[in-house]
Design a protein around this nucleic acid. Sequence first.
DNA 1: CTGAAAGCGCTTACAG
DNA 2: CTGAAAGCGCTTACAG
Lengths: 343, 343
Amino acid sequence: MSNIRLKDIAKKVGVSTTAVCNVLNSKPIRIREEKRKEILKLAEKLNYKPDIIASGLKNKSTKSIGVVIPDIRTLFFPEIILTIEKNIRKRGYHTIICNTEDNPELEKEQIENLLARRIDALVIVPADGMKNLKFFRSINKESIPILFMDRYNYDEFNFVATDNVNGAIKGLKTLLQTNKDLKRIIYLGDNRRNQSLDDRLEGIKKELSSNGLTLANKDIFLCRQERKIIETAGYKIFSQDLHNAGIFLESNRCLPGLLDAARKFNKKIPDDVHVIGFDKFEFEICSAEDLASIKVLTKAIPIIHQDIRGISKAVAEYILACLEKHEKLEIKLKLPVKIEIND
Amino acid sequence: MSNIRLKDIAKKVGVSTTAVCNVLNSKPIRIREEKRKEILKLAEKLNYKPDIIASGLKNKSTKSIGVVIPDIRTLFFPEIILTIEKNIRKRGYHTIICNTEDNPELEKEQIENLLARRIDALVIVPADGMKNLKFFRSINKESIPILFMDRYNYDEFNFVATDNVNGAIKGLKTLLQTNKDLKRIIYLGDNRRNQSLDDRLEGIKKELSSNGLTLANKDIFLCRQERKIIETAGYKIFSQDLHNAGIFLESNRCLPGLLDAARKFNKKIPDDVHVIGFDKFEFEICSAEDLASIKVLTKAIPIIHQDIRGISKAVAEYILACLEKHEKLEIKLKLPVKIEIND
DNA sequence: CTGAAAGCGCTTACAG
DNA sequence: CTGAAAGCGCTTACAG
C-alpha cells in the first residue's frame, strides 16, 4: 500500500517535492495546471496517504485528541466517546482513549504518554476526586487545549459537564410530586467524592430546605460502589421505617445492590419506597438472585438523564474551535438534565 | 512540561546528542560513567520524555496498535479492549480504537488512517461479513502484523476467536440435558452473516444430527438485530406449538425482543420453552414494558460465555510476540466457551 | 571512547 | 512560476 512518498510522486512527474506537497495540500497554485493535474491523478492512482507521523513532526499536530477516562466498561463513556469521535473525524482528527481505572498514578502515566505522542488536545475525566490536581495545574500551562469532562473543578479548568446541582433538584422535585407525603430523603452515594457528586448532594440539601425539610447526616449513605457493599448499606436503609421517605441514588449504578437489599427485606419499589437516581442503568441477569432482585421493582423508576449527546457535542466543538483558532478558548459549560418518568 | 529535547540535555551536560540518546536508551556504554550519571540525573530532573512522534519517524514504530471494532457501545468490546490495553501498556504500547459502525466504507477509511499513522500492528473485527475482503488482502501484504479478532476467515488471515462450532454444540447439549423431551430447535439469529455466526448455525445442525434430529429451514429465523424486529420474529415463534421445542439464540442480544414477544403471547421462559444463547446480556429497564418483559423470565437462562479474557490475552501476546521478533507469526486460535447454568 | 552528519517524510521560508 | 535547502526531534552508521 502506501509506502509512496511525496518524493516518489515528484520523481515520476518530474517536479520537486515542494511542488507536490503544495498541490496535494491545495496551497495557492504556483504550478502549471497540467502538472497539477498530473500530480493529483498519480497520487490518486497510487493511493498516496501522507505520513501523519512525518507531517506531525513538522507541523506540531498529530491530528489526534487524547481522551482519558476512568473505565470504558460503562454505559456512559463509550456513548460519549463515539459521539466525540464522529464529530471530530470529519476534520481528520482521531481519538486516543486511555483508561485510568480511577487510579491517579496510572492517570498521570497515561497523560504523560499522550503528551509525548504530541496529541493536539486533551480531554480528561479526572480520576478519584482529582487527586492529580497539581499535575493538572502543571499541564494546564501546556500549549495544547485541555478540557475536563463530566467531572470538574469550578475555578481553574475548562470543563463541560452536567449541571449536577440543578439535576439533583429536578430529580427531587419529581420525587416530591410523585409522593406528596414525602418528609425525608435517604441519600445513597459514592464514598469517593468529587465536585460533581458533591454538587448532587448539595442540590438535594438545597431543594429539601426550600421545602422546609433537611437531609439528616444519618440519612446519607456513602460507600464503595460495589454491589455487595451497597447491599449492606441497603440493609441499614430497609431495616428502618420508610414511611414518608424516598431514596435518592447518586447514580443508578447503586440500583442492583439496593434491590438485593430490598428483596431480603421483602420490600417493593416503589410500593414501599420511591426511588430516583442519575443515569440509565442496565441489569445483568446472570442468576436466580438477579432475577428475584429485579422483581422488587413493580414499576420502572424515574431516571435523571444526563445530556450525553450534548456533552459530547460540546466537547467536540470546543476542541475543534480551539484547534482552528490556535487558541485556548474558555469554556465552563453545565448542561441541564432530562427526567424520564417511566409509567 | 516536556518541551525538553535531547539537544537541551546535551548542551547542558556538554556532550553530543548522540551520547545523550545512547545513554537514555541504555545502549552499550560508550561514555564516561560520570557523564552518564549526569545525563540520567538531568533527564530525570527535567522530566524528559522522548518525542514518540520523532522517534517513530526514524524507527518506523509509533508504539501504537490500531484496534478496529464495529461499535464500542457493547458489553463485549470494552472488556476486550481494556484487557488488551493492560497487557500491551507494560511494553510501552498504546491502542488507537476506531469504530466502523459495521460499515465497510468507514472501516476502510479508518484502517487507511491508522496505516497513515504508522501503527505497529492492527487488530480488526471485520465489519459486515468481511465485505472488505479484497482490501484486507491488500493490507495483509503490508509489513505490519494484522490480526482478526472475534470474526474470522479460516484460510487467509490470522485470527483469535471463539470456537463457535463447538460452543454452539456445548450450548445445545446443555439444552438437551435440561429438557429430555426436546425434539426441535428454533434458531434465532442475525441476517448479516459472517463465518462466526455461520459456525454457530453449523454447530447446532451437527449436534442435532448426532441426536437424530434436524434443523428445519422454517425454524431458522434470521433478522436484523433490532428489538422491534426481533419481537416480530418472536410472534411467529410463539404463535406455534412449542411443545418439545427449544430456542437457540445466536446472541443474547436477541433476548429483549424475544421477551417482548413472549409477553404478548403470555408465555413464560423457561416454563413454556427453554432458551439458551451466546454471551451475557443486560437488560435496560426504562419503561413499564421493559419491566413486564423481564418478568417473562421465571428463571435465569443458561449462558454460553465466550472467553473474553482468553481472547484479549491471546491477542496481546500475539501482537507483542510479532513486534519483538519482527516477524508476522502465524496464529489461528479458537478458544472454547464456558457454559453458565443459572439455577 | 566520542561526535558530526545524514536521514526518517513532510513542510515552508527563501532564493532564483 | 519553481525548486533547493533547512528543519521538526530522534537515531545510527560511520569516521575519528
